[in-house]
């Protein structure tokens, strides 16, 4: 029953100026990185409803980070802000000079969260990584994330280093939404069966408006691909091109998009197409014109069955091989603890 309650409250918190609204605008409102300097400071809480995968609405609370606001969240607003939270995204500014104070505030937030929504997921983004020299990035990020973990009480925290200037932002947010999609195991099971059938090296599912990776499967050969951040990079590439298309066809980026893209090269063939209403499918298959055309046809045929499954969130009426796990019903929705 939890899976059917489709509104999920997502808190976006962090110190003032750490980049919360910037990344929200880039991911969900089709801003480009250099335009975010136009954003002003967030006053109090900005609520926005983000439709994601169509039937999943993220109820995003962008909480202004100035100290005065922080105090009210933790005092008079405490119950209002921290109840029913599905996900807390806490943003740290890597350049901050008051690391200890940041961590104290973070710890206070965690305390409040434990009180009102003990089952929430917590993601910490160490943001503005681009400001650190490349050779020190990994080390500083690891130091910082171990500090964060030590102040996170019993919550299991996922940390990401991010920057709005490269694909790392997409990696972080893909990780976040990955946790939020209710029937993900069904989707993944279907995709891997499908990928095997059409002999694909890799199949990736992208969300339509944000171009975030929903999920992906790759074959044994596809796993050998030496470029690990390819999914985020693809998100970045395709979204940049979407902006370009929007600019030059005089529409808004929100309404621009692709119907279909085919790419054939001597090393690989790629098909990108609308899969369900809210997703694009991205297939990578080995060269071979006939095999490629077959794969594309099969994808088109698979579309219908898949969209049914994605919409209902259950495995009924869904053409799949018998499930590998017997307790399939329980894993249908990610229990977010409502």
């Amino acid at each position: 029953m939890d899976a059917r309650k489709k509104k999920r409250k997502v808190l976006l918190m962090g110190k003032s100026g750490s980049g919360k609204s910037s990344m929200r605008s880039i991911i969900f409102s089709n801003y480009v990185a250099k335009d975010v300097r136009r954003l002003g400071a967030t006053i109090d809480v900005e609520h926005s409803h983000v439709k994601f995968m169509g039937n999943l609405t993220l109820n995003l609370w962008d909480c202004g980070g100035q100290d005065a606001f922080m105090e009210t969240y933790l005092a008079s607003q405490r119950g209002n802000i921290f109840s029913d939270v599905a996900v807390l995204i806490y943003v740290f500014d890597i350049e901050s000079r008051e690391v200890d104070r940041d961590l104290d505030t973070y710890n206070a937030v965690i305390e409040a969260l434990r009180e009102f929504s003990p089952n929430a997921y917590v993601f910490c983004l160490v943001h503005k990584m681009d400001l650190i020299q490349a050779e020190h990035r990994q080390r500083i990020y690891e130091e910082r994330s171990s500090l964060i973990r030590s102040r996170s009480e019993h919550f299991r925290v996922d940390t990401f280093g991010s920057s709005i200037w490269d694909q790392s932002l997409y990696k972080a947010w893909a990780g976040i939404v990955h946790k939020l999609i209710p029937n993900l195991t069904v989707i993944e099971r279907f995709l891997s069966a499908f990928a095997k059938k059409i002999d694909a090296e890799e199949v990736i599912l992208f969300e339509r408006s944000t171009f975030l990776t929903v999920t992906s499967v790759s074959s044994e050969i596809g796993d050998l691909n030496p470029i690990y951040d390819r999914h985020e990079r693809l998100s970045n590439i395709m979204k940049a091109f979407k902006h370009c298309a929007a600019r030059n066809t005089l529409t808004t980026p929100a309404s621009a998009g692709f119907v279909v893209m085919h790419t054939k090269t001597p090393q690989f063939n790629i098909f990108l197409g609308r899969f369900t209403d809210n997703t694009y499918i991205f297939l990578v298959v080995p060269p071979g014109e006939a095999a490629y055309n077959c794969a594309v046809l099969n994808t088109m045929l698979a579309r219908e069955g898949f969209s049914k499954a994605a919409a209902s969130g259950r495995s009924d009426g869904f053409p799949l091989p018998p499930p590998e796990t017997p307790d399939d019903g329980a894993s249908n929705g990610v229990n977010l603890g409502f």
């Binding site: 119907v259 001597p266 990108l272």
Partner: peptide, 13 residues
């Protein structure tokens, strides 16, 4: 079999 030169096309909204 496949052509040796890359070919690609995209259909926009």
């Amino acid at each position: 079999e496949q052509m040796q030169e890359a070919e690609s096309h995209v259909v926009l909204h």
